[in-house]
Amino acid sequence: MAVINLLSANFFSMIRSKRFWLGTFIMAAGGVYMVLDINRMKDMAEFDGLLDSGVFQYAILLFLILPALGSLFINTDYNDGTIRNKLTVGRTRTQVYLSNLITVYAAGVFYTLVYEAVYLLVGFPVLGSLRHPQAALSKLLMMLLLFLALSALFTLLATLITNRSVLLICVFMAFGLILGAQIINAKLEAPEMIEDYGGVTYITTEDGNMTVQYMDKNGNPIDPEDIPRVPNPRYVAEPMRTVLRKVNDIQPGGQLAELLEDGHLEPDGFKTATPYWQLALYAAGLAAAVTAGGLIFFRRKDLK
């Protein structure tokens, strides 16, 4: 009952917030923009599953908006002193923490639904129907779990850091998670062996075509088949390879990359995907662990 009162107050506050509706507008505008962009690109190249290609493009935007909105929402409690009011009227710290988490996550779900509704409503007449609706639905459920983990992470930060700098810290951390995932994937893509040549030059053949000529270390022309292969110093060997792959599977930025790109490239050039059940387990586990840690620290936090 107490949590329901808190949630009721939180939702009421959120709905009256201009920033919340600004975020809603951005998500809706993103849906319209995506349809227009795909429609423009389909004239330039062969496209299969046109409507499918934009269903999850909102995710990167939401990955940045949700930490901003969530941290601003929670930080307002500290800024205005309402957090002490909540505790004074008898709410427990656990109730306050969990109601904030649920509110932030609910905003994320709402934004997802706004984007999807606008995108599909505008997209159906222009781009046709979804080619793979079941795949889209299972990916959507996975996205919702991902954003639960993200909400938990930034609720923790926004609750423990009372300074207004938390707004920027959360957004930059979200950028960092995305960038970190890209860097890790790029490192793990590096092949084990690489070609060892001195350089390339471009020559025109007798029939007028431009072709690439490889040169060896001494500057002499060499056939591609004769180029020696050497161990790649940038190749990430075990056990670090497994560690980095697990980091990317667990951290929300890595999960986002995995879902948006339908897997990751291996050194042999083939794409492999981490099973959804594993990603779901990691997301749920991260959400639970971070929330548990947040509750423990919040109970001890000095709120003066």
């Binding site: 920033r19 901003a68 601003l72 930080n75 800024n79 207004r164 707004l167 920027l168 957004v171």
Partner: peptide
Amino acid sequence: HRAVPLAAL
């Protein structure tokens, strides 16, 4: 408003 850094970004 204290949210001006977000607005700037």
